[in-house]
Design a protein around this nucleic acid. Structure first.
Length: 907
RNA sequence: GGGCGGUUAGCUCAGUUGGUCAGAGCGCCUCGCUUACACCGAGGAAGUCAGAGGUUCGAGUCCUCUACCGCCCACCA
């Protein structure tokens, strides 16, 4: 503590300077890494590890990131103070599609396009872009005060990730899970790549359902024969342009209308293909005409129907979603133009039977909003079912828990109905698929960085690598272990894996969480994390999602500059129930700012009130019990309760509850009551040892609260703590000081004195209440005669009579007469265990009667309710004894209270 | 079409295993610049816990149904 801090504490808290300075102090001390120079972790303690969900390199930090970072930092800081080796590994994701879109815009500004640059130059440019944006994102994270281990920062495109991707893919290939095949993929024409099922957003839209007449060939006629003019089958479709790719018409096998037509051939218009009518029970008889055109190359259902019936698949489109040569006369048209043309032509032919409005769901690309086209492509897929089984087992065996628990069901529902994962992306930015093909089409998969020397089958050297890259989420799925060194059994992997908590938004439970669990279980034989903590979305004050287009985005850095990172963190955590979305607006932020200010000022008072008799360099210790007054015992008791409850809340992921407890403890108990009580006992007329003891308690309790609050508001607590005396074993920084163990407090407080003070506080409140109701000026001092039912209350009162005087603005005496109030005009206050009579003028007394009457009415109402409960024989016999006793005690209290009030009212 | 979540003071929301649980913050009203803080202090008003049944001695808290609101999943073309 030789370090000088010249600047005195400012009257109003100035977060910006304090936060930057404090953060630098931590960096200098090297305390973020579990094995850093400043770490005080016990090596034998169980490590606590969080791998940071990587923000995209492309975007600026938004409130969602801030909320997540705040929550993760909170957990890491608590674990660090518990002296566990706490590792929080930060990183960023390369976000291939998103990055590609962003860079395209950047390039457009520079007057060029990716196509012009070509793959190689494009990738160079992308890397440069990454080098520019990555530090920005990480700098923003730092500004929030997060205590990640920057020395271990990772990127999903770094060499370690690249190697993990290759090794993982080869393993999956050898295990028979990764395969290459021609299947229907979700093609986004705008992005020029396939996307996974998850990236296709079902969008309800108003469309049309057209009924089209297909002409049958005469019974028994071979393909190519002249179709009948009259014998038709009417099919219903929402996508007439796919008629050109039809290879069958399907009807339900039990449909009487069509049963006799099964096996006949129909003529597909415009391209003159003759296709069979097949029976398949996927057909809904009640929908449309009950007859369905089947286009296996452009519809997922039809693809499967085609598989069952061995139908050809005819792709009629190009990558740009225009019609290709297979579309015959319509070649070159866009999907939309082709539809219009076909409808026009059908109409002209008289084969357009009906057109009616139809509500439907259209698959659009999450990224570009283009209509996704199911198309036939030869790509890589992963059979995820076996991995899904493993992931689900981890949850069933409780090796991985969801918080909140209900997301387990969501998780299971998805994994139980999972399809193969298309992982090929026709993008340049990303990990290139490590598969090579020889001219004969043999496939060689290799995990060697430079690729395989020769074909595994024909040994030729002539190899070409797959042009495609992996779905971004493939490398993200390896994140919890690739960042720790996998596939090598590194020290980090052995020490820190499996990790403890994965904290992320519930919106990426499928994209990311489930995939990490599948890949983690499969590749490492362990669950990648023990707990999945899912947080909600941050919304604007009106409950709307924040989005750039709506213009309702709150920039977290703007808030940080304005009110400080600590206040923002407090607001975010205080407002978040696990898994639930939260609205964030100015009022909550103001509240958090005010709380920081309150804490700052309380600390300023405490530090400034240090009695001269205490040495400058002193250790933080609690004084002997007999040197403390009742108020000291009371605050120690309250402090103990707050610590116990807040710690339990932290431990149970009830972070908002923890902040609520600490807010109440600090503001409503410590500041509102104890500080005021302590002021009296710090006065010049107080015995020096009592004065010293009072300050020691003030400092000691503040120290506890600072420790407990540090995970949420790290900077301000660190700054204040640095100015307080420390315990010899604490070190210089709060960030590595010990987490308060609740048992340390147990013997400190004398609970009976604490209870006496609680009664006196209640009495003071009621005296204030009575004064306000009677309209007595706050400045007016009144004589008050107090009576206590128990001797220990009287004793406690004697010790803090000055406090009571000051807080209630009265000159108190302890009375012994039975009915003092009847002798003089007085306000009468009746509370459990105590009464007070305040001398006032007669007219005030009259107003006071009204208040007493009201109080009596309330008391009697409560009394009636409790008595009714006790009168119920079933309650008395069936409820637990403790509950019944509690009600009896309550009844007695109320009875007593009512009697006394009646007495004062002269009844 | 399935599933999940919500409906508690004017507003935003806490209330994890049924028994001081009817709460907090903001807002509002009345006082007060009392030497930590007006980003403050003291006091106050305000809710039949969406509706209807049921289980229980006892239900915002468990069950059923209903009504709105939100989200997720889904191959009726």
């Amino acid at each position: 503590m030789s370090e000088t801090r010249p600047e005195p504490m400012a009257k109003a808290y100035q977060p910006a300077q304090v936060e930057r300075a404090v953060y630098q102090r931590w960096l200098d001390a090297d305390v973020f890494a579990p094995d850093g120079a400043g770490s005080r972790a016990r090596p034998t303690a169980e490590p606590f590890v969080i791998i940071m969900p990587p923000p995209n390199v492309t975007g600026a930090l938004h409130l969602g990131h801030a909320a997540r970072s705040a929550t993760e930092d909170l957990m890491i800081r608590r674990a660090r103070m518990q002296q566990r080796p706490a590792l929080w590994l930060p990183g960023v994701d390369h976000a291939s599609i998103a990055a590609q879109w962003v860079l395209r815009r950047v390039l457009a500004d520079e007057g060029t396009t990716p196509e012009e640059l070509g793959r190689e130059q494009y990738l160079e440019r992308m890397w440069r872009f990454m080098e520019e944006t990555r530090p920005v994102i990480m700098g923003q994270q730092r500004r929030l005060g997060i205590s990640a281990d920057w020395g271990r920062e990772r990127f999903t495109m770094d060499d370690g990730s690249a190697r993990a991707v290759r090794v993982a893919f080869k393993r999956l290939y050898e295990d028979g899970l990764a395969y290459r095949g021609q299947k229907l993929v979700n093609w986004c024409p705008g992005c020029g790549t396939s996307v996974s099922d998850l990236e296709v957003i079902g969008t309800p839209e108003e469309g049309k359902l057209w009924s089209v007449a297909y002409h049958l060939l005469p019974e028994g006629a071979a393909a190519g024969a002249e179709p009948s003019r009259d014998e038709i089958i009417v099919v219903a479709t929402t996508r007439p342009e796919t008629i050109l790719g039809d290879t069958a018409v399907a009807v339900h096998p039990d449909d009487e209308r069509y049963r006799h037509l099964v096996g006949r051939l129909v003529r597909i218009p415009f391209i003159d293909r003759d296709v069979p009518i097949v029976a398949d029970d996927f057909v809904e008889r009640g929908f449309g005409t009950g007859a369905v055109k089947v286009t296996p190359a452009h519809d997922h259902t039809d693809f499967e129907t085609g598989e069952r019936h061995g139908l050809p698949r005819i792709d009629v489109m190009t990558d740009e979603a225009t019609m290709n040569a297979a579309a015959g006369p319509y070649e070159g048209l866009t999907r939309e133009a082709c539809r219009t043309a076909i409808l026009r032509d059908l109409e002209a032919m008289g084969d357009l039977v009906e057109a009616k409005d139809h509500e439907m769901v259209i698959g659009r690309c999450q990224r570009s909003d283009d209509i996704v086209e199911p198309r036939l492509k030869t790509q890589w897929f992963i059979d995820v079912k076996p991995m899904a089984e493993r992931a689900m087992r981890a949850v069933r065996e409780r090796r991985t828990l969801f918080v909140p628990e209900r997301f387990e069901k969501v998780f299971f529902d998805w994994l139980e109905n999972i399809y193969d994962w298309n992982i090929s992306r026709q993008l340049w930015w990303g990990h290139r698929i490590p598969a090579w093909y020889c001219p004969d089409g043999h496939v060689t998969v290799s995990d060697v960085e430079t690729g395989p020397g020769r074909c595994v089958e024909c040994r030729t050297f002539e190899l070409a690598q797959d042009e495609d890259t992996f779905d971004t989420w493939f490398s993200s799925g390896l994140w919890p272990f690739s960042t720790l060194g996998w596939p090598d059994a590194t020290h980090d992997l052995r020490t820190y894996y499996p990790t403890q908590v994965m904290e992320t938004g519930h919106d990426i439970i499928f994209f990311w969480v489930a995939r990490m669990m599948m890949l983690g279980e499969w590749l490492t034989d362990q669950e990648p994390f023990r707990v999945v903590y899912l947080s909600g979305l941050i919304r604007d004050p009106y409950g709307k999602k924040m989005s750039k287009t709506k213009g309702n985005v709150i920039d977290p850095l703007g808030i940080v500059d304005e009110i400080g990172a600590d206040a923002l963190r407090f607001a975010l955590i205080n407002g978040a129930a696990p898994g639930a979305d939260q609205r964030l607006g100015p009022s909550r932020l103001d509240g958090a700012r005010n709380f920081a200010n309150k804490l700052w000022n309380a600390a300023r008072f405490v530090l400034g009130a240090k009695p001269a008799e205490l040495p400058a360099e002193m250790a933080l210790i609690l004084p002997e019990a007999d040197r403390m007054g009742p108020a000291e015992h009371w605050i120690l008791s309250r402090c103990h309760a707050a610590l116990r409850d807040a710690d339990a809340a932290y431990g149970g992921f009830q972070f908002a509850e923890a902040t609520r407890i600490l807010h109440t403890a600090i503001w409503s108990e410590y500041c509102d009551w104890y500080l005021e009580m302590a002021k009296v006992r710090l006065g010049a007329d107080v015995a020096p040892e009592a004065r010293a003891a009072t300050w020691q308690v003030l400092a000691w309790v503040l120290d506890r609260y600072l420790r407990m609050l540090h995970p949420v508001m790290p900077h301000i607590t660190e700054e204040i703590w640095g100015r307080l005396p420390h315990r010899p074993d604490d070190g210089d920084l709060l960030i590595t000081a010990a987490w308060p163990a609740s048992e340390a407090l147990q013997s400190a407080a004398d609970e009976s004195q604490a209870a006496a003070v609680a009664d006196i506080i209640e009495l003071v409140s009621q005296m204030r209440n009575a004064r306000a109701d009677a309209g007595i000026e706050p400045a007016t001092w009144l004589d008050a005669e107090l009576r206590f039912e128990q001797a220990d209350r009287t004793k406690a009162f004697d010790a803090i009579a000055d406090v009571v005087a000051k807080l209630a603005r009265v000159r108190p005496t302890v009375g012994h007469a039975e009915h003092a109030s009847e002798r003089t005009a007085a306000l009468v206050v009746v509370s459990p265990g105590a009464e007070a009579c305040l001398s006032v003028g007669a007219q005030d007394r009259e107003r006071d009667r009204v208040r007493l009457e009201k109080e009596l009415a309330e008391t009697e109402q409560l009394l009636t309710a409790t008595s009714a409960k006790l009168a119920n024989a079933a309650f008395v016999s069936k409820a637990p004894a403790a509950v019944v006793d509690g009600v009896r005690t309550r009844q007695a209290e109320l009875q007593d209270l009512a009697t006394r009030i009646r007495g004062h009212l002269g009844r």
